[in-house]
Design a protein around this nucleic acid. Structure first.
Lengths: 351, 351
DNA sequence: GTGAAAGCGCTAACAG
DNA sequence: CTGTTAGCGCTTTCAC
């Protein structure tokens, strides 16, 4: 049993030097074929590529970055570890960082609590020797923090900022278009009398989603009954209460569109309390595709954001900006598409 | 506006050389004080530390790893990106990797679907030049995969494997002790008539949690009414159905302990349907502290696993094993403590 | 097109 | 206790 387990590779690394020897060329030539730069002669390249394959050679990222001096240290700051965004965002960001030879450093700002701490935190960032930071929501809408970051000259990419996407560099989804799309989905399924639960008043995405809903209704020539539109706070409970109001009405809607999944789950709970079945008696849809959407029953039809993709692209956006701070301002704001994911909470009335 | 924004640091970083010059010593001495090894003379050390502070010097991890040759490439394989484990696990694992100069490489096995793909995936791992892998649940209980990994001689640390914790290297929580602790919490709050919803039959943690519940009841000399114990499947819906059965009884329990949060959320939904208030009429507790626990209303009292800590320690466990495959077998299995997190779903009857 | 030399920033050996 | 000498594996000059 004293047998020694071999490691997956233990970086027994064929090095670039060995590849060069096997191929009978210099290290530089190998380096060149790897980086696909200056055209290496076809025959030489093939020889090198064969050697690479034979030795199962993989370039050492550390050495590459050290020598190239190109590796960026990118911070990712967040304040809500249970945010289910984070997981996917991280996957995307890490993958891109690995590809590009950058390093992702996580900075937990959970303890952050308003203006008092900001300076201290910004100091920490400066001290960490980061090249720039990715700001995860809801931190990306914290004006106090953002201002400090700017003052401290820390380049930042804001991920899904709920505020105005004109400032700084940012990456976001089109809330309004997404809400319109979801509303259209409901209409396509034959729904006409549709309730809507608005999100928290102080968040811009609330307004945008609301606008999207109204726009879609208008486009389809359907009048919106004001009694069917309630304001919530993006919480489960507020969704439940909003639905309680709506379901107390005489003329019930056939569907309710809640501005996020937590509220949609609350709407469903309320429907249960009122003896309604979902989706048989009433359809419910949410927004965000958070874990709760697929945890509850019936599983929620909702809007899915390409979160991992956002993580991936945010790294590129930051790197691009760092390399050329004066780049085309148009490229400073990326807007990504979303998609409706159909599950079990909508009944098809169009049959 | 063509003003050039400075970067946070752009690694303009003082190097070890500059520190050495400022302090009037050799690079080696600086290196030594950094690594706290061979005792550097007090006076010298102070001088070096001052220089470090003055220059705001931070060692370059890349260079350190390259020279030290100690950096490990650690893979983290998972198949459920929406798993809320992942986010916290990643935070813990990344932090440790950064500290230790290792590199975390994510490998998404979501497409993995049984035996057919395994070989291909294991090949991918081998090809990636990883030193070892961290296996995230539920992959850590996939016997087919684990066997292949072993055959391919890929060192792996299993995170919270639901199977027998005797094989390989693993890190887990004590499900039974945790369930016992939660049951005790309920008893301390004055509950005696307690319902229990068992988890899915094919998962070992279900049995362990059930055993913990029974043990606590027995320790307190309370008899368990079999009518109050139902089997679920770890899903919201199964929790709801189990509660439907229990709440149809004449002699209702004052509390229901569901083996995970999704089922507990289902139990609450069922209570609502039966016109019960939570926690006024009936208390409900869950297990896992997943996002749903704090998303729903009332927020769930549940059991919290130290997930980030597991990520952190799993890295160490793997590194230790890699450095000494023949280490003390006792240290190959780490069991971590959990804690009850009190929220709003339990009523105190003990007053 | 290709190669030789000189490092990137740090630490491992060995000296002193 | 501290300094010197070599690299880690790769890329950047600048030659040829």
């Amino acid at each position: 049993m004293a047998e020694k387990l071999s490691r997956v590779g233990r970086r027994q690394h064929a090095t670039i030097k060995e590849v060069a020897e096997l191929a009978g060329v210099s290290q530089m030539t190998v380096s060149r074929v790897l980086n696909r730069r200056e055209v290496v002669r076809e025959t030489t390249r093939v020889r090198v590529e064969e050697a690479i394959r034979e030795l199962n050679y993989r370039p050492n990222l550390l050495a590459r970055s050290l020598a190239g001096g190109s590796s960026l240290f990118i911070g990712m700051i967040f304040n809500n570890p249970s945010n289910s965004y984070l997981s996917e965002l991280l996957i995307g960001a890490m993958n891109r960082c690995r590809e590009a030879g950058h390093h992702l450093v996580l900075e937990d700002f959970s303890s952050y609590d308003g203006a008092e701490d900001v300076d201290q935190l910004v100091d920490r960032l400066s001290g960490a020797g980061l090249d720039g930071v990715l700001v995860v929501p809801p931190l990306s809408e914290d004006q106090t923090l953002l201002k400090k970051l700017e003052e401290a000259r820390i380049s930042a990419v804001l991920i899904a900022p709920r505020g105005q996407p004109e400032s700084g560099t940012s990456l976001s989804i089109d809330d309004e278009a997404a809400a319109r799309q979801m509303t259209q989905h409901l209409i396509d399924k034959g729904h006409r009398r549709i309730g809507f639960v608005i999100g928290a008043e102080d968040q811009i995405s609330s307004h945008r989603r609301h606008r999207g809903f109204l726009a879609a209704m208008k486009e389809n020539g359907i009048e919106v009954d004001p009694a069917l539109v309630k304001r919530g706070k993006f919480t489960y409970r507020s969704g439940m209460e909003a639905a309680d109001d709506i379901l107390a009405l005489d003329d019930l809607p056939t569907a309710i569109f809640a501005s996020n999944d937590d509220m949609a789950a609350g709407v469903i709970a309320s429907a249960f309390r009122h003896g309604k079945r979902v989706p048989e008696d009433i359809s419910v849809v949410g927004f965000d595709d958070t874990p709760i959407a697929s945890a509850i029953w019936p599983q929620l039809t909702t809007v899915r954001q390409p979160i991992a993709e956002m993580g991936y692209q945010s790294v590129d956006l930051l790197a691009a900006f760092l390399n050329d701070p004066d780049a085309d301002p148009d490229k400073r704001h990326t807007v990504l598409d979303v998609a409706v994911v159909e599950r079990d909470s909508v009944r098809d009335l169009s049959g």
